[in-house]
């Protein structure tokens, strides 16, 4: 898979994961009282951070003109 497709695929998956409809009717708590839906989105923020670290490493966050 080329680089652009990898990026597009990752972003599409991240977007889909944002819409956690499977948790929408759950109100149980985890990790000492955090509602499961909120805990999921805290984890989601961490996942985005990791994904961005991967993309930055892969793409370099640099442009030819700056080198």
């Amino acid at each position: 898979m080329n680089r652009s497709l990898t990026v597009a695929f990752m972003l599409a998956v991240l977007y889909l994961l944002h819409n956690d409809f499977w948790l929408w009717r759950r109100y149980d708590t985890v990790l000492g009282g955090i509602p499961v839906g909120l805990a999921y989105h805290i984890g989601y923020c961490l996942l985005i951070s990791l994904a961005m670290a991967f993309l930055v490493r892969r793409l370099g966050a640099t442009e030819p003109a700056d080198r």
Partner: peptide, 10 residues
């Protein structure tokens, strides 16, 4: 900024 922004928001 790209990597740490989601954590700051949380």
């Amino acid at each position: 900024a790209i990597v740490a922004y989601p954590i700051c928001i949380a």
